[in-house]
Write a protein that binds this DNA or RNA. Sequence first.
RNA 1: GCGGAUAUGGCGGAAUUGGUAGACGCGCCGGAUUUAGGUUCCGGUGCCGCAAGGCGUGGGGGUUCGAGUCCCUUUAUCCGCACCA
Length: 870
Amino acid sequence: MATERYNPRTAEPKWQKAWEEGKLFETKNDDPRDKYYVLEMFPYPSGRIHMGHVRNYTMGDVVARYKRAKGFNVLHPMGWDAFGMPAENAAMQNKTHPGKWTYANIDTMRGQLKSMGLSLDWSREFATCHVDYYRHQQAIFLDLLDKGLAYRGPGKVNWDPVDQTVLANEQVIDGKGWRSGADVEQREMQVWYFRITDFNEDLVSALATLDQWPEKVRLMQANWIGRSQGMSIRWALNGDNAPADETEIEVFTTRPDTLFGASFLAIAADHPIAKKLAAENPAVAEFCDECRRRGTSVIEIEKGEKFGFDTGLTVRHPLDPEITVPVWIANFVLMDYGTGAIFGCPSGDQRDLDFARKYGLPAVPVVLPKGADAASFALGDKAVEDAGTMINSGFLDGLTTTDAFDAVAKRLQADMLDGRPVGTHQIRFRLKDWGISRQRYWGCPIPVIHCDECGIVPVPKADLPVKLPDDVEFDRPGNPLDRHPTWRHVNCPQCGQAARRETDTMDTFVDSSWYFARFTAPWADTPTIPQAADAWLPVDQYIGGIEHAILHLLYSRFFTRAMRVADHLDIDEPFRGLFTQGMVVHETYRTKDGKWLEPGDVRLEGHDLTRKAFHFTTGEEVDIGPLEKMSKSKKNTIGPEDITQSYGADTARWFMLSDSPPERDVEWTDRGAEGAHRFIQRVWRLVAGNAIGVEAGDWSDAGEQSLGMLRATHKTLKAIGEDFERLAFNKAIARIHQLVNDIAAPIEAAATGAPADRAAAHSALSILVQLIAPVVPHLAEECWATLGHEGLIAAASWPSFDPKLVVEDSILLPVQINGKKRGEISVPVAADNATVEALVLAEDFVTAYLAGTAPKKVIVVPGRIVNIVA
RNA sequence: GCGGAUAUGGCGGAAUUGGUAGACGCGCCGGAUUUAGGUUCCGGUGCCGCAAGGCGUGGGGGUUCGAGUCCCUUUAUCCGCACCA
């Protein structure tokens, strides 16, 4: 009798209901078992769940279900990173309120996630845009203000002069405002900062403790924080034409050894001296404005043309006052880095060399590269950035670059300028303080009040929350909080005089910098319950996209430290294990006139190289484009419901983890999804088709074929546990395929055999179902019940492998002759090298090769390989 | 520009530490069953060659008994760069 096909459309909702009614995934804080906290980066409620989410949350769910089966008290929560710009854009476009749009999206997406069968604790769900969340964030802000970790200072923003609004970098397209098209200006204003640089040394050194983070991410963070050792050197300005009160320019350098190669000083357009010069000289002002117009993002500056302006000022060389060096303003020098001034050494730095060549500044070689001839060496188009021997450098000549560094340091620390050393050793960081002010509505209001009498006054904690007003309009650009008729007008909490609320809201990265702590006690009327946070944290396994490798993860690490200062928790690092998963990509389709088409609009014909695409309705031939991250703009998205409705959530889950290693991109293909579904049906046939014959029992008397089947099963069980621990899902899935291939025939034979064989088949099938349960939980429940097990598999313990069943007594060793495989030999596992060597040399194919000559050497790698050098 | 990564059959990929390259899946070819098709089952499938055999992990060079893996060099592609989340 043919087994009926497994029907996910009826099975999946049934088991989801059973889990929910049994409250299987609701986690208690007072559970005595060991904790395990698995967290996926929570989603921004953009509208619908996409395949990237499915992949991310499936990975987390496999870990959660596996760890739960292993006996841990697992915390696996879900929430919404719900503040942000897209909600305001939607509000402008659709004449709705950002909150309404956001909460509607959350409802949709929650439903989609639930249909995925994720083992989430929904009782801890929250959205960061809800006042019950952001009121606590305001409390934390006040604590940080109190501890000196939040402050207000000058900052630069993109200003759209037509829309009269601040723009995000994303909203600046080729230097123009995205809506107005106006040239964007850089404007300085007072903004709020978090003092992340207070922790820069710790943030970089503690990276060494994060041994369960990808090496790549740790490196990216270290480079981002950018610790560098060097010297701060003061250059005395030559007096006659220097601006008032300016006597020197301080420069930070990591290469004081190349000081004799200095041919100019370059300062940033925002350097105080440049500003003073600009105030007097329109040509300087024009040049500085031009620098600001070119944009300030690193990428624009580094890629763009380097240009400079000769100020006419000169400075005296710190090692030889006879030498004077001109001072330029240059667009590639940033006020944010170091001191906002550099000394240009054309021979030792490619950028400086290009600059010197462009403006006819001298370029004298000071480092002789290793192996170069001193007499003939000349500087070409390439600067010498590597170590070497000093030349043309006065008292440094002949020293190595390292020794020259020390010699210069010694000298400059002894030399005095205005009673202070000319040079001092310094450690500098590239990391800047975190600017958190956003001139937007849909964010957490910064809880301070500006009073003409008292200055900046924190909102008293008793007055929290500072709630966002609901009655706002998005009919024009700018921050609705600024033009709200009443919201900003309050009395000063200190003096009672009329005062103004801060209308800046916080960067949404603040919201996501502590949500993982909030999940440990989301009901608390304080930001955290410190005991709960300390018990659950750090997150044991955090999973998310590599795009967050720097900002979100660094901010969270900072926030954890800041919250410790404010006594909200007491841990070192927020995330013990980190995994960064790859994207889900899909082919793109465009008509000949360049319009994007959805996969559903396209009909594919042919195979591989001959493959062509045609527009479904017009029949027009369509260009098949490259694999791209699924995105609305390129219309190459596949929604999870497309799959769940036809194949079920398990198919989507299985496919998302198949084939591609989880850290790499995976391509969504219909064929792949079909393959995943085929496998699900295959497992169902194997289980349901044999369920009548098998039953639990003693299999110790089972036949050799049945025991072989159990050996294969237990070996796989052992290996899969290791795969899941390492998040090697693709390998686990390959192994499960292999196992099903191996045991399908023995199962069928055993199911109609002796009681011991039928018991063996029952045992093997039960283990197989448990192995797939973390990935395809609905199918596993259906199979589990069909095999006659009581209770839900979601609540069952992970099986343990039988050590007797995973060892072999003989092993097949490959035999190489001169490094080429020529045959195999079966040897006892216990055999020593001499025995193996003797056995190998007696083999026919070996003696035939050697033809009577003695081998030069025989290498036996126990358990691995034998190589004969003839 | 700076920083980071990747490269293996027709395709996605596997190969714990330097030890059988191509597991597993997709696709394709052949067969069986059913047949309206799909499904299902069995066999084959790196390349060249009739075969013996040879060649094969982006290219070039090196270390080693042995290299996808280590070293040098080179090419191509991808990602991040501080107000997108």
